[in-house]
Amino acid sequence: MSPRASSHRPRCPRCNLPLHLCMCAEIPRVETRTRILLLQHVVETWKKSNTGRVAALALSHSRLLTYGAQDESLDTALLSEPGTWLLFPDGPAAPPDAPPPRQLVVLDASWSQARRMTQRIPVLRTLPRLVLPPPAPGTLRLRDPTHPSGMSTLDAIARAVEVLEGPEAAAPLERLAALRVQRIADCGTLY
């Protein structure tokens, strides 16, 4: 039985939130030049707190892959495509004069899972990194955004899109992230 089947409250099969918090009607269609490849740790798949799924639904130029499922192997060729960077707070930075990435790999996982993924998937260690600048103060977030583990996947993608493509491209993702936080706050609980 999947974790979803054992849940006490019914969830939306698309956004994975409890039905009373469903955001599907609010998910915008966001066009980006940069392809976003979300590499989701299998443990994150059915978490209500997971925002990677919502980001993938919003981004027209994205793909969501699962890492760590026992019956699936990861096609690392997708990670090796020319112009691929990794969104990660440390590691080999791209040269300042490098062209922007054509594809950005985003690890949709807890901080400790993401670190282990970079250790266990050799190609990730070779990718240039996009390191995000510190967030602006006063932004409503689920967690402390000053630490990499404090930023949701949706928040990180919105900030990456802002860095790579400008504030107009990122605005719908930022609004979606804020709406998600507000809905959860109105409900009074994340779980």
Rank of each mutant, 00 (worst) to 15 (best):
E26I: 00
E26S: 03
E26T: 00
I27W: 00
I27V: 10
P28M: 01
P28T: 01
R29P: 00
R29M: 05
R29K: 03
R29T: 08
R29A: 09
R29W: 03
R29E: 08
V30Y: 06
V30Q: 12
V30T: 11
V30S: 03
V30P: 05
E31F: 02
E31H: 03
E31Y: 02
E31T: 01
T32W: 03
T32P: 03
R33Y: 09
R33T: 10
T34C: 13
T34E: 06
T34I: 08
T34G: 10
T34D: 12
R35T: 08
R35D: 11
I36T: 12
I36R: 04
I36F: 14
L37D: 06
L37F: 03
L37C: 09
L38D: 00
L39Y: 02
L39K: 00
Q40Y: 14
Q40T: 12
Q40D: 13
H41Q: 12
H41N: 10
V42W: 03
V43F: 10
V43P: 04
V43A: 15
E44Y: 10
E44L: 11
E44R: 09
T45S: 02
T45P: 05
T45D: 06
W46I: 02
W46R: 08
W46V: 02
W46D: 06
K47D: 06
K47I: 11
K48W: 11
K48Q: 13
K48I: 15
S49D: 09
S49F: 04
S49H: 13
N50I: 00
N50L: 01
N50R: 11
T51Q: 13
T51Y: 05
T51G: 11
G52S: 09
G52C: 06
G52I: 00
G52P: 04
R53V: 15
R53S: 12
R53P: 06
V54Y: 02
V54M: 08
V54Q: 05
V54R: 01
A55K: 01
A56K: 06
A56V: 03
A56R: 04
A56S: 14
A56D: 14
L57I: 08
A58V: 05
A58D: 02
A58F: 07
A58G: 10
A58S: 07
L59C: 02
S60I: 04
S60D: 13
H61P: 02
H61E: 13
H61F: 01
S62P: 03
R63D: 14
R63K: 12
L64T: 07
L64P: 10
L64D: 05
L64M: 12
L64S: 07
L64I: 07
L65Y: 02
L65H: 04
T66V: 14
T66K: 09
T66A: 14
Y67A: 14
Y67P: 04
Y67C: 08
Y67L: 06
Y67D: 09
G68E: 10
G68T: 07
G68P: 11
G68W: 12
A69P: 01
A69W: 09
A69G: 11
A69T: 07
Q70V: 14
Q70A: 15
Q70D: 15
Q70R: 15
D71V: 05
D71S: 15
S73F: 11
S73I: 13
L74I: 08
L74P: 11
L74D: 08
L74R: 12
D75H: 13
D75T: 08
T76Y: 12
